[in-house]
Simulated assay, not measured.
Amino acid sequence: MCPPGCLHSICAQATRRGVLRSGFALGAAMALPSASLAAPVPAAEHRFSTVHDLTHTLFEGFPTFSGERWFTVEKPVTWDKDKVNLHRWTLMEHTGTHMDAPLHFSQDGLSVDLIPIADLVVPLAVIDIRERAAANPDTSLTPDDIARWEARYGRLPDGCCVAMNSGWHALLDEPRFTGRDADGRNHTPGFHIEAADFLLRERDVKGIAVDTLSLDTGLASSGAFPVHYAWLGSGRWGVEAIAGLDDLPASGAMLVVAGPKVRGGTGGPSRVLALV
C-alpha cells in the first residue's frame, strides 16, 4: 500500500520530467547488496511534453455498422432520490473507441485481460490516407502506403502500432461515419489484407488502429473480415474508432492503450493516449 501522497508525488515528478520509462527497479534493488548494482541495465525511455486523448466520448447511440444501440445508461440511484449518483451501463464489448483482443477472431487467442501490459505501450506510426479516403470511402491502407511512409520516416519501429488516419474520426456525427447504404452495405476505409499480411510477415508490429469502426474496410466487414481473422488470429491486437490522429506527428509518438481488464473479454471500450 502506498502511503498518502506517494502516488501524487511520483506522478508530479514524472510530469515535470516528461519521461516515460519502460521498466522500474524498486524494492528488488533495495534488497540487493551494493556490488550487484555496479552494472545497471539501462532502461529505454521516451521523453514527451504533451498527452493527446485519442478516445471518442462514449454515449448512448454511438454509431454502429448495423444501427443497433450497443451502449445504454440507466440511473437506478439518483442524487434527488438517494443523495448518491450511480449508473448502470449495458454495452457490447466492441463499441466506442475500443480494443480488439486476439480472442475476438480466434478460437483460443488471448483475452483482453491476458495481453501483456508492455505490449500496450508502444511506438506509434500514423499513415495518412485522408485525401484518398475523401474521394473514395471504399479505399484501404495498402503496402504502397506503408512503403511511402518508410521512404520518408524510415523503417517502422519494432513493436509499434500502425494507425490508419482516414479522416473518419471527424465524421462521427454524420451518416458517412458508418457509410451504410440502402442495401445495408457499409462504405468505410480500413486495412487491406495485403497490408496486414506484409506487417505480419515483414515487420515487428504489435497492433494496428483505425479511425473507423472496423480494421477491415466496411465492405469487407460484411462477413468475410479477412484482416480481423489474419491479424487477431496471429495473437496481435487492434484498436477501432480511434480519434484525434490529425494532431499527431506521423512518427515519434508513443501510444498507450488502456484497455479493460475483464476476465475472458474479447475487447472493450478503452482510453487511448498518445505521448508526444
Rank of each mutant, 00 (worst) to 15 (best):
Met1Gln: 10
Pro4Met: 05
Gly5His: 10
His8Lys: 08
His8Thr: 08
Ser9Met: 04
Gly18Tyr: 05
Arg21Gln: 08
Gly23Asp: 10
Phe24Glu: 10
Ala25Glu: 08
Leu26Gln: 09
Leu26Ile: 04
Ala28Ser: 05
Ser34Tyr: 13
Ala43Trp: 03
His46Thr: 05
Arg47Thr: 15
Thr50Lys: 15
Val51Arg: 09
Asp53Asn: 15
Asp53Tyr: 08
His56Ala: 05
Thr57Phe: 09
Leu58Cys: 04
Glu60Lys: 11
Phe62Ile: 06
Phe62Val: 07
Phe65Val: 05
Gly67Arg: 01
Gly67Asp: 02
Thr72Gln: 10
Lys75Pro: 07
Val84Gln: 11
Leu86His: 14
Thr90Ser: 13
Met92Gly: 15
Thr97Ala: 10
His98Lys: 13
Met99Gln: 14
Asp100Met: 13
Phe105Ser: 12
Asp113Thr: 02
Ala118Tyr: 09
Asp119Leu: 04
Val121Trp: 08
Val126Arg: 00
Asp128Glu: 11
Arg130Leu: 04
Glu131Thr: 11
Ala134Glu: 07
Ala135Asp: 05
Leu141Phe: 09
Arg152Leu: 15
Tyr153Ile: 07
Gly154Val: 03
Pro157Arg: 00
Gly159His: 11
Val162Ser: 01
Ala163Pro: 01
Met164Ile: 07
Asn165Lys: 11
Asn165Arg: 14
Ser166Asn: 10
Trp168His: 10
His169Ala: 13
Leu171Gln: 14
Leu171Phe: 09
Leu172Tyr: 05
Leu172Cys: 04
Glu174Ile: 02
Thr178His: 00
His187Gln: 10
Thr188Tyr: 00
Phe191Cys: 01
Phe191Ala: 00
Glu194Val: 00
Asp197Val: 02
Arg201Leu: 08
Glu202Asp: 14
Ile208Tyr: 08
Ala209Ser: 07
Thr212Ile: 09
Ser214Gln: 08
Asp216His: 02
Thr217Arg: 08
Ala220Gly: 04
Ser221Trp: 01
Gly223Glu: 12
Phe225Thr: 12
Pro226Gln: 04
Val227Gly: 01
Tyr229Pro: 03
Gly233His: 03
Ser234Arg: 09
Gly244Asn: 02
Pro249Gly: 02
Ala250Thr: 12
Ser251Ile: 09
Ser251Asn: 09
Ser251Cys: 12
Ala253Glu: 00
Ala253His: 00
Val256Tyr: 14
Val257Thr: 10
Pro260Trp: 03
Gly264Cys: 05
Val272Pro: 02
